[in-house]
């Protein structure tokens, strides 16, 4: 699946806010934050079929 842009003009602001959210955390804490974010975002999406497709898409892109 191909994911089109939905953030529009806010893309840079979002990315920076995400980096700010990690500011000052060590790697374990950042890992935990990411896990919490995934769970929170999943709940916001709230659609199992869509979530499964997104999981597959993300997994496909994983390079070693």
């Amino acid at each position: 699946m191909i994911l089109d842009d939905k953030l529009g003009r806010d893309a840079d602001a979002f990315y920076n806010a995400l980096m700010d959210a990690h500011e000052g955390l060590d790697e374990t804490e950042s890992h935990a934050l990411n896990a919490r974010l995934v769970l929170i975002f999943a709940n916001e999406i709230g659609d199992l079929d869509r979530l499964k497709t997104l999981l597959t898409t993300a997994r496909q892109n994983t390079t070693s």
């Binding site: 191909i2 994911l3 089109d4 842009d5 939905k6 953030l7 898409t57 892109n61």
Partner: peptide, 8 residues
């Protein structure tokens, strides 16, 4: 693969 990521 994904246009959204290009924008980032």
């Amino acid at each position: 693969d994904h246009p959204f990521a290009r924008k980032l």
